[in-house]
């Protein structure tokens, strides 16, 4: 069965939108972070699909880079969240508004 490119892209778009909605709507920092990862992976899916349908490996190489960097980013980001939680005893974004005004 042949699945056309559009389907991949639609799935990628749905994933990206879900991730974006999560980033904007959710209150827990950890969940926001996971949604951010979801958006990254939606982009990865789109890149891989494009690469496959265009017979060009550049997209897949790009994805490897993204995964590597994302892994590093996750470790740093999680460390920051843990440190913040230790200091503030909360991971809710409503409570973290010291940048106001």
């Amino acid at each position: 069965m042949h699945i056309p490119l559009e389907h991949y892209l639609i799935v990628s778009g749905i994933l990206f939108s879900l991730g974006l909605l999560g980033v904007i709507m959710r209150r827990n920092l950890l969940v926001i972070y996971m949604c951010l990862e979801l958006m990254l992976n939606a982009a990865n899916l789109a890149l891989v699909a494009m690469s496959r349908f265009n017979d060009n490996l550049n997209g897949q190489i790009m994805v490897f880079f993204i995964i590597t960097v994302a892994a590093a980013e996750v470790s740093v980001g999680l460390a920051l969240i843990v440190a913040l939680y230790r200091k503030r005893q909360t991971a809710h974004v409503e409570d973290l508004t010291t940048m106001k005004n």
């Binding site: 974006l20 980033v23 904007i24 709507m25 926001i32 974004v93 409503e94 973290l96 508004t97 010291t98 940048m99 106001k100 005004n101």
Partner: peptide, 13 residues
């Protein structure tokens, strides 16, 4: 300038 991260993100999007 609300200080809320999500407002900034929303405005960006």
């Amino acid at each position: 300038q609300t200080g809320s991260l999500q407002t900034y993100a929303f405005l960006l999007v």
